[in-house]
């Protein structure tokens, strides 16, 4: 091996003019993005500032002005003592109701859909394609058409107006899209993995829990995000099936905002609205990066 001259590495430099740092098109691009961002942030700004103002300040009518005197009282009131219909306990019961609805609904629907997708891909049975088509077709029927029959069904099951009813409804309505999601994901995994596990002697559940589920983190994250935000934001099923004592946060929020007695407390309404939206917001912020994770790397061709 011949030794290279000591100066050799520095002798090789990129040639040609260095690209300009900021091109005109960049400035336009960022300008447009900035305007778009401001446009979407403005309502949030108004909500936050209004929620921090006292009522006298709001009556001045200048909604864009920052609060002169910051007060957290509207937030406290929204959470603890705002009147939702007849009771005046604020949003907190609604929050816990929503938690009680969202968690079981999400867990149930995601688990069942995962098993569905896995079975549809790996354990084809007679009529499995028809079953899948029917399931997907079901998702095209408008909700409104199904509400009344479902009221009758839950009533005859004796669970109408209970937590169980609304959890059942959410689980059912999550099924088509979630099954589709899991089916497509499992279909994208190499079928040899399933075959190898079968040769190794694993059965339906063992393959599901020990091979498939650990590989499903990205799609699990997607499914959970879909369900948590969807169920948390639901109004229709909550107001119909949950019963008054189980009204989710969205229904309580509506009751606060739309109560027509006395003065409209804009600050409390704003605070209540932000409080209700916090959970989906938090979900998006925390789980965003899970979307892009590729767990299956290394299972297939190198």
């Amino acid at each position: 091996m011949t030794a290279l001259p000591a100066t050799a590495p520095s002798a090789v430099v990129p040639s040609g003019p260095r690209p300009k740092r900021v091109a005109a098109s960049r400035i336009v691009l960022y300008g447009i993005l900035l305007v778009a961002a401001l446009y979407y942030l403005l309502p949030l700004y108004v909500m936050v500032t209004t929620s921090l103002k006292g009522l006298p300040e709001i009556r001045l009518g200048n909604i864009f002005a920052p609060p002169l005197e910051v007060t957290f009282e509207p937030w406290v009131k929204a959470w603890t003592s705002a009147c939702t219909g007849l009771t005046c306990k604020g949003l907190s019961p609604g929050f816990w109701n929503s938690v009680k609805i969202t968690i079981p609904s999400t867990v149930l629907s995601v688990l069942i859909a995962a098993v569905n997708g896995y079975a549809l891909v790996n354990w084809r049975f007679r009529g499995s394609e028809f079953f899948f088509t029917a399931l997907i077709f079901g998702s095209f029927i408008p909700y409104q058409v199904m509400v009344y029959p479902l009221v009758l069904v839950t009533a005859s099951l004796g669970i109408f107006g209970t937590l169980q009813a609304v959890i059942l409804i959410h689980t059912i309505f999550g099924m088509p899209i979630l099954t589709l999601l899991f089916r497509n994901y499992f279909a994208s995994l190499p079928p040899e993995l399933f075959k190898a596990a079968r040769v190794d002697g694993a059965g339906f559940w063992r393959i599901f829990f020990q091979i498939m589920l650990p590989m499903s983190l990205p799609i699990l994250a997607v499914a959970i995000i879909l369900q948590v935000t969807g169920i948390w934001n639901d109004f229709l099923f909550g107001v119909i099936f949950a019963g008054t004592q189980n009204y989710p946060m969205t229904v309580q929020l509506n009751n606060i905002v739309n109560s027509t007695q006395g003065v409209r407390e804009y600050n409390v309404n704003m605070a209540a609205t932000i409080l209700t939206g916090l959970v989906p917001l938090a979900v998006y912020f925390v789980s965003g990066r899970l979307f892009v994770r590729g767990i299956a790397a290394g299972a297939v061709k190198g």
Binding site: K195, A197, V199, A299
Partner: peptide
Amino acid sequence: GIGMVFQSYALYPS
């Protein structure tokens, strides 16, 4: 009483 080796290796990634 069989063992199988696949083209795509099919190792359990997790």
